[in-house]
Design a protein around this nucleic acid. Structure first.
Length: 217
DNA sequence: CTACCGATTGACT
DNA sequence: GTCAATCGGTAGA
């Protein structure tokens, strides 16, 4: 595969929902000392600058989410449950919005991904945001890194055209708040997509409700 | 400092 | 389908 040029800053300088949809089919590129890995983005989620309580920026700037408040086109990498998640900061400076890259189809550097993930199963290499980051050796050192340079970590346009009719929307995965917003996009029919393949509503978490009720009396 | 919690994953029924 | 290990981030005393 030839070197693929990165998407320009203007690509990210648009409504975050448009960016999330248009990232489906794009190529996630990672060049590290140990080699190159490439994957086709098959699943994303948008996190909105306003009206979205599930967005990390919903309750103001902190040390963790500060990158979201900056210029579009940068990586926002955060840790959760000992894993990392990769986002592309989008929309506009001062409007903290981002696209979570949830899954890619491994295309190049599959052996390297398998080594990092300690599994040979193709479907376990980069299906899910935490697995993806492990396969691509992405951690908080890449927080605030520009995705528009074509070095270390970048995103390139699709290698083959994606029809908008092949992209499905659903609710987002793994969040407690704002579960009903249609902000998850995925490539219809791809086995490399994580989670449900159609619209769903997550079940009520009774354990958490109980804890919450007990705590608030 | 403590307490709580999660944009997850892997193991298990 | 269910469940919890695990730890950095966050808020608050």
């Amino acid at each position: 595969m030839p070197d693929a040029a990165p998407l320009p800053p203007d690509f990210y300088h648009r409504d975050v929902v448009d960016v999330a949809r248009d990232l489906i089919g794009c190529l996630l590129m990672r060049q590290s000392r140990s080699g190159r890995t490439v994957g086709r983005i098959v699943e994303t989620e948008a996190y909105l600058a306003s009206g979205d309580p599930a967005c990390h920026a919903a309750r103001g700037m902190t040390r963790r989410n500060r990158v979201m408040f900056g210029a579009p086109g940068k990586a926002y990498v955060y840790s959760i449950h000992t894993r990392f998640c990769l986002n592309a900061v989008s929309q506009a400076k001062g409007e903290p919005a981002a696209v979570l890259i949830r899954a890619v189809e491994p295309l190049e550097g599959i052996d390297l991904m398998a080594q990092r993930r300690r599994t040979d199963r193709m479907l376990d290499l980069a299906r899910g945001p935490g697995r993806l980051c492990e396969a691509f050796q992405i951690d908080r050192r890449l927080d605030d890194f520009p995705l528009t340079r074509g070095t270390r970590l970048w995103i390139a346009p699709p290698d083959e055209p994606i029809s908008s009719t092949d992209i499905t929307v659903s609710s987002r995965i793994g969040i407690r708040l704002a579960q009903d917003l249609p902000l998850r996009f995925f490539l219809d029919g791809s086995p490399f997509v994580s989670g449900p393949r159609r619209w769903h509503r997550r079940p009520i978490d009774h354990r958490r409700l109980h804890q919450r009720n007990r705590h608030t009396g």
